[in-house]
Design a protein around this nucleic acid. Structure first.
Lengths: 344, 344
DNA sequence: ATGAAAGCGCTAACAC
DNA sequence: GTGTTAGCGCTTTCAT
């Protein structure tokens, strides 16, 4: 019999048991509010635990009970505000359940996603909320076999593993495209990423292109960027695009932040924003309310997606039917950077 | 003898052991890259694990080994960009160590902080990174007794429990105040929270007030706000303050976002921004690069604080001396919303 | 290089 | 209402 502990000693149930003169089992019951315990015993135990500063060991508890109050939440990044906002929704949806979100980030990299997922699943969470529907085969296999609810959020364009909640970015893009056409714009430029891991931005662009092409309009120019989005990127790209394709009459940014940069630039240059030149961003970031003009944008309803995903994970909400997708409808907010619908 | 498992069955080492004809112990060694295992055995084990889709149970592993590769990171919120940025620094500092950050949010509420901390410590993380130096007595006790490195970040104005890394917000505020005075402004308004849990904002204001008072200047007006900061809040407060205290000549915002709103408002009203009216924000958010004017601000070096905290937690960096505080020096970026230093 | 035995700290199940 | 027993799935230790 080897006791292998010369490292830092944590208090155990046994310590509380000895200090209070109550069996370990009863101490355990008190600390978890389980079963019937007399008020006297309960008081003794609580006093002892508090006095000693006992912090239970959830590792042992989880192993013994096969229950873990953790929900894995996996997102590409926390630097893009949409993900913290979705996460806020998850916290909201988990409130009062005793479940706790644990966040992992993938950096838009499928292989890192795989590693993070493996790591998180090895803690046996009670559920998984993961951004997007595009995952490596290995990731899909892990998610399919993990035995707990899995909700893919912020996108419904694709086949969910288990359940999916969010807007259709393709249709959101389509809606913007249709609106652009309806308002009589004909030379549309697209500014944003279509490359690497941002499938939602890609789908928005594809939907937009489709709507334009159905209206007989092509994409006049397109420009991608790398790195963090911000006003400076938007300014820069806008300047470049207007220089190389001067007859552009509408600029669609895949992100409000670059859109705001473009808006500021266009206003400074004295361009007829909202008239001859239309602008639109995407996501409807509240923090941007208060720009000189209200940028046209689309509310991607990420917070709601997070909340509903959490509700599904904890069984508060059940998705019925064979198609386990819950499509949220994005709201197009025309702001004042698009001209009125043409009656031509 | 009761087997208590009719729920979802996870694979265990035993399954891999049986499938590969190798003892559990050796399987364990292979999967952890520990000890000497022949190449043949290793290959067999890896093949079997992969084929079965085995995901190890870290709960059991952690219990047996008394080792957990988790670092608790506790922040007030993820909606304020400074915290995700700090977190990015933590991830950077943990890279290659096998340690993983686990995030908890407190909503600026000391009691929730206590609960989150208790919850996280009960998973026996290998270290704790926590924002701020102000905690409830119970929280301080838990942190002091948890037996792992604890680093308080983003502030050094106070007594750390174990170690602290960040800027002094008081001194940063003082620096801004000194600069305001040096540039000849005399009627300073403060826009931002000094209330509830945001101690850093409070300290900035206190430092600012001190510098002003040393220069013989009082605070001409002050206004606090609730809820999320954004451009709209900045505009609104600015309008209100200029209306009620028209002779204000400098506006200090505790946050760049409200500052940016104020800047946009002031420019629209045709005010002499950077001349008769000075403006400054705080934090130096990169995403705002590209405003019509470069808002004066202070880089709070939160990413670096996160990185260094992580390095301390994992033992890559050691803080020497009796004062276990590492003070980062904030950079004042005057931008173009303050007039030149007066030579009066 | 591989295996056997013991036990990490807790809780489910069952006795009293 | 409270106590006893037997593990949870893994790793440490020690034997071979």
């Amino acid at each position: 019999m080897t006791r292998r502990s010369d490292r830092h000693q944590h208090l155990t149930l046994r310590d509380v048991s000895e200090a209070s003169g109550v069996s370990e089992m009863t101490v355990s019951r008190v600390l978890r509010n389980r079963g019937d315990v007399s008020d006297a015993t309960r008081a003794k135990v609580i006093a002892a635990a508090k006095r000693l500063g006992y912090v239970p060991n959830k590792i042992a508890g989880a192993l013994a009970s096969n229950r873990v109050n953790l929900v894995a939440v996996i997102v590409p990044s926390l630097s893009n505000l949409v993900f913290p906002e979705m996460l806020a929704g998850v916290e909201e949806g988990l409130e009062g359940t005793g479940l706790q979100p644990v966040v992992g980030t993938t950096g838009y990299d499928p292989e890192k996603e795989e590693r993070v997922l493996f790591e998180m699943l090895s803690w046996r969470p009670s559920g998984v909320v993961i951004a997007g529907l595009e995952h490596s085969e290995a990731s899909r296999a892990m998610l399919g076999n993990c035995g707990v609810p899995v909700v893919e959020v912020m996108d419904v364009d694709g086949e969910p593993i288990d359940a999916a909640v969010g807007i259709s970015h393709w249709r959101a893009g389509y809606q913007v495209g249709a609106e652009i056409a309806a308002r009589g714009y004909r030379r549309v430029g697209i500014l944003g990423t279509r490359a690497h891991g941002d499938h939602r931005a890609r789908k928005r662009i594809e939907g937009l292109e489709r709507a334009l092409s159905e209206a007989g309009i092509g994409v006049a120019d397109q420009m991608a960027y790398e790195g963090m989005s911000g006003f400076a990127k938007g300014r820069e790209m806008t300047a470049d695009m207007l220089a190389r394709t001067p007859d552009i009459d509408f600029l669609f940014y895949t992100n409000d932040l670059t859109g705001a940069g473009g808006l500021l630039y266009a206003l400074e240059k004295g361009l007829d924003v909202g008239g001859a030149l239309g602008l639109a961003g995407f996501n409807a970031f509240t923090l941007l309310d208060g720009l000189p003009r209200k940028l046209a944008t689309v509310d991607s309803r990420r917070r709601e997606a997070g909340r509903i995903a959490a509700e599904i994970v904890c069984g508060r909400r059940v998705l019925e039917g064979e198609d386990r997708r819950l499509e949220l409808v994005p709201t197009l907010l025309p702001g004042d950077t698009m001209r009125a619908v043409s009656t031509a």
